[in-house]
Structure formats: structure tokens, C-alpha cells
Design a protein around this nucleic acid. Structure first.
Lengths: 143, 143
DNA sequence: AGTTTCTGTAACATCCTTTGTTACAGGAGG
DNA sequence: CCTCCTGTAACAAAGGATGTTACAGAAACT
């Protein structure tokens, strides 16, 4: 399918939380985050909800409530974000079971499975090299 | 979106062509490939059409027609297949432009762009390590 | 040349995912 | 207890992937 923007939204939200924290604003509401990402607050709550379940952010209820990083931005890597928000594997297998009478049809799925696993690990390893603090640094360099 | 199965279908077709060639059958029709993949022949023609445009397979028309590998299976790597069939980038950017008044909204897209590029390169590098001949070998090992 | 066989592609249906939106119950500070 | 904001359900809209039918066109073989 078309590439989704979940990782982008989650990283944007985290970078914004990191910057706000640095500026002394300890909490941001989903409305405030949505205003920067330019989307609906529910989208942000869904995304930050995933990150909360992964232990990357925490939330406070009641008046003056909002979201904040659960740990320093240096210690949140993009692979953790990726794992938190991305459910589907990178490459899909056949929609309907291939023909098991054919030697290729019979053996292709386990073979592709381990190849795809390796590719996904390579991707995750690369994402692990970058932290939210790195993203924020590069983001602010542009302006 | 949901992970698509384009790479899977294309690699399956190529592995099947490689095996058929080894068995002395120099051409396979889209019907024959579709029977192994268990899908509609048009899906196969679309996929093999992409691979033909990338120079990986060639096609013969007329009676006794069909598809064959344009080069040895050892010399077709999965990254070439990936590039041939996958159009969208791995990670999507924001659907609607982020708020450029916000420092994060302003700088996040170029920052993410280069990070995503690096991740995609790592993925492609890993896919480049495996050839269709490797896939066929692993596929036949299972049965 | 004509016939046959299979490709190439348009057109359309269906299904599923993503994103956006409204609405509202519920939790937790003050 | 009140208020503010989260958490989530429910639904709509839009887009992509896959499957299907149909048919024009290319090329081998006679």
C-alpha cells in the first residue's frame, strides 16, 4: 500500500515534546501537538497511545494535563518508535496460499520468510543508530 | 498500508522461471506461472512486465511464447527486483504539510528525509546480498 | 497472408488500510 | 465536585492492492 505516515507522525510528536521540555514546558496536550503536525488531535492520541504502551511517553490527566517524554530524548531510538507504531511486516506473503504441488510453491514461503527477516533486521539496525535527540538536532539545523 | 505482496510475487515468478530453465523448459506462459503462485494471470503479466522493463526477464510472443530470465539467476539480486516492483518509499511523510510556524514543523521533513534514505539504503544493501539462485536453493531445501 | 496463441493493458469491482472526524464516557488534578 | 483532557468507539472518505473480464495487437508457424 501506499507508505503510511505513522513513523513520521510519532517522531514529529516526540521531537516536539523534546523541544518543549527543553524550553521548560513539561506537558503538551494532544491539541498542541496536533497543531504542529497539522492533523486531528485524535490521530495524535492514537499515536502517542502506542508510544505510551511502549513506555516511551507518559501522560497526565486532569487540568494542566498532557504528554511528556518518559525518558531522555537521547535514550529513545527510532527503532523503538518503529516497533511501537508499525504492526505489519515490511513485505507481505502471498494473499492466497501458493500451489503446494509445485516445488517452488511449496518451499518459497519459509525461504522468503528468513530473507525478509534479515532485511527487516538490517532496517531496524539502521534505525537504531538515530535517537530523537539526533532528529531534533538535525531538525533545528535546517531553520 | 498493509504490506503488499509484490516482491513476493515477483521473486516467486523468477524462481519458478529459473527452475523451469534448469529443467529444460525455456519459456513459461503467464498462465503457467499463475498456476504456481495461485493468482490471476493478469497479476503475473503486470509483475513480469515490471521486471521486463527493468531488463530482468524477456518475453516471446506468438504460439509457444512465454517468459524467460534475461540473465543467469546468479546475477539477479533481490534489490533489482525490489527496485523494479516497488514504487513508493518505505516511510511516508505527513499527509498535509506540517505547521511551518513551529520550528519542528519547519525542519522535520528534510531531517526525516535523510534518515529515511539511510534506512532504505541499509535495506537495499541487505537485499543485494541474495540472488534468485540463492532463493531457489533455499526454496528447494525445504521440500 | 492467415491462423493461432499469448501478451499488454484498459476498465471495473471488491476489499482493506489509512486518515480524518464527531461524540462521549472516564480519569485525575484542583 | 468540577473541569479539562484523555481514551476509544463509530463512522465516513479516500486511496491502494488485488482480482476479473474483455479485447486489441504482436509474432511465430503453417
Amino acid at each position: 500500500m501506499a507508505a503510511n505516515s505513522r513513523l513520521t507522525v510519532a517522531v514529529h510528536a516526540l521531537a516536539w515534546l523534546a523541544l518543549a521540555q527543553r524550553q521548560g514546558r513539561d506537558q503538551l496536550t494532544s491539541d498542541q501537538v496536533a497543531a504542529s503536525v497539522n492533523t486531528n488531535p485524535v490521530i495524535i492520541r492514537r499515536s502517542l497511545g502506542d508510544l505510551r504502551r511502549a513506555g516511551l511517553v507518559s501522560v497526565r490527566h486532569g487540568p494542566g494535563a498532557g504528554w511528556s517524554l518518559a525518558r531522555p530524548a537521547e535514550e529513545i531510538s527510532l527503532v523503538q518508535v518503529y516497533d511501537a507504531v508499525e504492526r505489519d511486516p515490511l513485505f507481505g506473503m502471498h494473499r492466497s496460499e501458493p500451489n503446494l504441488e509445485c516445488p517452488v510453491g511449496k518451499g518459497i514461503r519459509p525461504a522468503l520468510g528468513s530473507i525478509y527477516d534479515g532485511a527487516e533486521q538490517a532496517l531496524r539496525r539502521e534505525l537504531g543508530r538515530t535517537s530523537i535527540a539526533d532528529v531534533l538536532r538535525q531538525t533545528l539545523q535546517v531553520s
